[in-house]
């Protein structure tokens, strides 16, 4: 049941595009709990979204 970072990264990305199912959400949460690298990547993905919208709206 231990996921790889690659799988976690896929789910972190898809989380921004669709509602994850309950099992997927649980798997992702469990992975994030033990993986600092993926917690960082989660923040990075969030920043990407904020950055592109900022570029769009701010000029």
């Amino acid at each position: 049941m231990m996921d790889t970072c690659r799988k976690a990264s896929e789910l972190l990305s898809q989380e921004q595009d669709r509602a994850l199912g309950p099992v997927e959400r649980l798997r992702l949460q469990l992975h994030l709990l033990i993986c600092e690298r993926c917690r960082r990547v989660e923040h990075h993905f969030e920043l990407l979204r904020a950055a592109i919208r900022r570029c769009r709206d701010d000029g």
Binding site: T4, C5, R6, K7, R37, C38, R40, V41, H43, H44, E46, L47, A50, A51, R54
Partner: peptide
């Protein structure tokens, strides 16, 4: 399947934005 390099801490996102 793990990250090859450690993703770095990007610090305060608002400051970057």
């Amino acid at each position: 399947g793990h990250w090859r390099d450690m993703p770095s801490d990007w610090g305060n996102p608002d400051a970057a934005l």
